[in-house]
Nucleic acid binder design. Structure first.
Lengths: 225, 225
DNA sequence: CTGCATCCGCTTCGATACTG
DNA sequence: CAGTATCGAAGCGGATGCAG
């Protein structure tokens, strides 16, 4: 990318990650290390040469690291370097800012449930749930399930499923997103037949309270953090 | 900009502010409302048609608002709308991430001291200085002075100067930046003749402590916030 | 199949000129 | 002052090729 040539930290940051696709690559790697093909699957529409270019620049900038397997069965693994991990707070703030825009997303948009993981992490990061009991929620979204869990006062979101969750929700990505953002109530989702929800009444109520806590937090109302 | 077409809050955010120059426009407006010319001055290198395009899209997206004066003396004023103010946390995180990159900035980079204001705000936002006494620091940077002040437990950075600061520092932009980032100690700056510093010894010491507090905070060490 | 490199049509960008 | 118009250059998107 062309550099801005400004003595400004924001401009310098954008010199590195301001390019098209670049932050989305970081998003992909924020969940797990990826092979080239994994990245391409998570970035529908990217030109393969662009992906290769971006990976090179990101490595040069120290944002990602590449782990090359020896010749016989070569599969490069791309992962966030320390400098890349340091981008996650910025990424989270952008996710929070962009979340409302999902309300009027296009029908034809690509959907990956793993994108919701980053969104959930951003929404629930810093939310105090220390008063909440442990809770496991399995979200069965198409073929890529994700898990929400409350453990010792922290709420986690991650890829994968668990055998015996307190609540299990089967739905598509947009529905899961609407539920997590507090736009669609659990009961309403069931009633409209957009989701199948299993779990005890109390567990479902605890999940509803969590969602409510994540929906709008004071720090998010005030721009100055 | 071409849309990503992904059902992902980050992608949606980048659909709006991911374009080249866009976040820098938000940076300019984060300090004060701007006329078109002010914006162009703060965005050296931008093509005027691009600026016009971006302003249109940003207004359409509700990020900025335009206040048009009546025909006789028409001077449009651009300012951040509510949705634009909500971008500041993300902008701050990017600023924090980009700050270390200033260490090896190019000599030919453009410099505006007002860019340091956004940087200082980001660095000191959330820093607890409730135990610090009120303090006013005037930074006389070329022709655009800025002020740091500690008032009722909050540290503020803003454009403009004050008549009787506790500490007054005259230097150029990069030097001020290096001092604020903790890369250049106040005494060293004086010794190397890069800055002229006035103020009592105790006031200077208090400033030094502030800078040290802003330099690295625990929350910034841990990526997950 | 993975991990790119190359080519090509098209869009966007950057620089300059010009107008109300 | 506040933009619009124009045009060459660069970057992007899509298709294809190809080595390990």
């Amino acid at each position: 990318m062309r550099q801005y040539g400004q003595f400004c930290p924001l401009a310098k940051a954008l010199d590195v990650v301001g390019d098209r696709w670049t932050l989305l690559i970081v998003r992909e790697l924020s969940e797990r290390p990826c092979r080239y093909t994994d990245l391409r699957d998570g970035l529908p529409g990217i030109a393969t040469n662009l992906l290769a270019d971006r990976l090179k620049s990101l490595e040069a900038a120290g944002v990602i690291s590449v782990e090359a397997a020896p010749p016989p069965i070569a599969t490069n693994l791309y992962r966030l370097a320390e400098r890349g991990e340091a981008l996650l707070p910025a990424l989270h703030e952008l996710v929070l800012w962009g979340a409302p825009l999902l309300a009027d997303a296009d029908e034809t948009d690509e959907v990956r449930s793993r994108w919701l993981v980053a969104a959930a992490q951003a929404m629930f990061a810093g939310i105090d749930v220390s008063d909440a009991d442990p809770l496991e929620v399995a979200l069965d979204i198409d073929d890529e399930p994700i898990t929400l869990s409350v453990e010792h006062g922290q709420l986690h979101a991650e890829l994968g499923t668990v055998p015996h969750p307190d609540v299990r929700i089967a739905c598509d990505g947009p529905t899961a997103s609407a539920i997590l953002r507090g736009q669609l109530h659990l009961d309403a989702a069931t009633r409209q037949d957009r989701a199948q929800i299993n779990g005890t009444r109390t567990a479902r109520a605890r999940l509803a309270r969590l969602i409510d806590a994540g929906r709008v937090t004071p720090q998010r109302m005030v721009p100055g953090r």
